[in-house]
Design a protein around this nucleic acid. Structure first.
Lengths: 335, 335
DNA sequence: CTTAGCACTCAACATGCCCAAGTGCTAACA
DNA sequence: TGTTAGCACTTGGGCATGTTGAGTGCTAAG
């Protein structure tokens, strides 16, 4: 039996099954694809594929469906990325114009991606390692509560309320603000932990503890918050594509709501710089996603964007969409 | 036939149906509740209730289930709010401590509410009508792009990137910032549209147009953005409670994702100051929610918080939870 | 290695049957 | 007038049975 044809058969099975949602049999296969051989031959090939664990039969006299392993092989060796349609390109292009908020852009991105793929789209807040401090502000909300705001040159604004042990005067805050600002304006956010202590050390002794507290606040703002969050859209697609599989949708929704789970999932997926990464079915560490696949890729300086859908999905098209969107995102938010 | 008993029967039907998820018959009713009469009598009562459109039978020889109208009567006249358990009170209490971000508080609130009710929880960002301007900041991101930040004394921070027609110097921005700040610090956000024009008028002529643009930015930040957004949690509960009804979950998820729909829904629900408002099944303006109910109430100065679930829900408990959470929220965020 | 032919398997569908739950009605009763 | 017991009637759900068709695996021939 020829190796190329075996792969061709697998490809045909995957494509038909993704399209029809029903187990596909040998006869249907030869009818819909011009394989040049008879159904009996296909049957032999299928037996081999089954032995290798690439396809499986739900029951004795039904067609075959791809296994996780089968999809894996399909994605890795068979499928070739489908180019996007002109309309889709246009949609991406026109979506990401205008001088808008990072939040705005991300929100529209997930919406677009979910519409493009008919799946649940997910995007992680961009990594701001390279972002520079543009401004810092301390605002007195209550006698003991200070709002610490940090603004980066990327347009990202993060804030946090912190409790400074004792009452504090507004003048002291203003003083500290200009001190801090003088020293940290223009530095990379990532370097704040190294820079801040020296600023604190130079403060007047009576403000030392306050400065320390504020520095802590700034520091925590610089690394956490943002990149630890994700945005998503298109959860309704889950219900649509899983009409017959309503059982699995619960766990999937749970996973999507647990940002921690999604974040681990996304960052665990190595970042293939050439293209998108795919995690199929039980390859996912989280049990609730045993029947789901994730297609994701990095953008900008390392944050992830991607989609989540049933294992039975149109990988080539989906991968193309994710890749295209990620590229535009990188271009707009800077790399 | 006695009017009180009729209501008692309706109550029994609602409670049993909510609990068992199955149409309830006359015999089962007399067994599970001590109504003091025989099943035949109950049958007569049920016939009347059906005639009045309060209950309905899925088919000839099945029990009855409440109609939307039946639930309505139940909620309005029969049910009495169930007090929360001590554990639940404690959960609410302990959840909302610590000097945290508004976003933080809201996020934890929806989580809590969804766990408490086993439904999808929704909360609108608080109205900041009474909030006072604490600080404003203009940050130059690119030669023509300015990040406008507005900070209120409530700890809310809103920002927006705007495109100022031509290149602008940082010094000009700083100058304008202090001008603006001097005039608007301490004013109510809601009054900004009235105050800003006079500030613009007093600016040096060469900065007039820039000032105008920035004023526009501040103005748009003051009313929109925040209160127009909602936060939600617990969508996985939809899948859990609707194991048998997987059809309706799609449209519901769609509605939940359309913030506009949810916002209209919430604000259309009059704000009964004494307690929570309930919108049942087809009472909802949105078709996708024909089998869903919304239980909501106002908090703070008018924003809404509530839950969304199947019409067949435990209204008394749910209403109690929503009310309690809203109260705590009001207390913490100020009314 | 491929193919035709054939026996075999099994889910899906249909049919018919029975049962239990539940109703509505009527007539008797307090 | 309201309540009750009794009874005929309806009907969905469960179950056994039969049928069909898609699909397989195997064998023997090309």
């Amino acid at each position: 039996m020829s190796e190329p044809r075996k792969l061709e058969v697998l490809r045909a099975i995957v494509e038909d099954y993704v399209h029809s949602r029903e187990p596909v049999g040998s006869k249907a296969l030869v009818e819909r694809h011009h394989l040049g051989v008879s159904s009996a031959t296909i049957r032999n090939d299928m037996a081999v594929l089954e032995e290798e664990g690439l396809i499986a039969a739900p029951h004795t006299s039904a067609g075959r469906i791809p296994t996780d392993k089968g999809y894996r092989l399909f994605v890795d060796r068979i499928s070739q990325v489908k180019p996007l349609s002109a309309a889709e390109r246009r949609a991406i292009h026109s979506l990401l114009e205008g001088p808008d908020d990072v939040d705005d852009i991300l929100e529209r991105t997930v919406r677009l991606l979910s519409q493009l793929t008919n799946q649940v789209a997910v995007v992680q807040y961009p990594h701001s390692n390279r972002a520079l401090v543009r401004h810092a502000e301390f605002v007195l909300l209550a006698p003991r509560q200070v709002l610490v705001v940090l603004i980066a040159d990327t347009g990202s604004v993060v804030q946090k309320v912190i409790d400074v042990g004792s009452e504090v005067a507004n003048e002291a805050l203003m003083l500290l603000r200009s001190r801090f600002l003088g020293s940290i304006a223009g530095t990379q956010l990532a370097l704040l932990p190294q820079v801040l202590p020296s600023v604190v050390a130079l403060c007047p002794p009576d403000l030392r503890t306050l400065a320390q507290t504020l520095a802590h606040g700034l520091e925590s703002l610089s690394d956490t918050s943002r990149e630890e969050r994700i945005l998503m859209a298109g959860t309704a697609n889950l219900a649509r594509s899983n009409v017959d599989f309503p059982l699995s949708i619960g766990p999937v929704l749970e996973a999507l709501e647990e940002q921690v789970v999604m974040l681990r999932l996304l960052s665990d997926m190595g970042d293939d710089p050439r293209g998108v990464t795919v995690s199929i079915g039980r390859e996912n560490p989280y049990d609730g996603l045993a029947e789901a696949s994730v297609v994701a890729t990095g953008y900008g300086s390392g944050a992830k964007v991607g989609i989540l859908g049933p294992t039975r999905m149109d990988y080539p098209t989906t991968m193309a969409a994710v890749r295209a969107v990620a590229r535009y995102l990188s271009r707009i938010l800077g790399g």
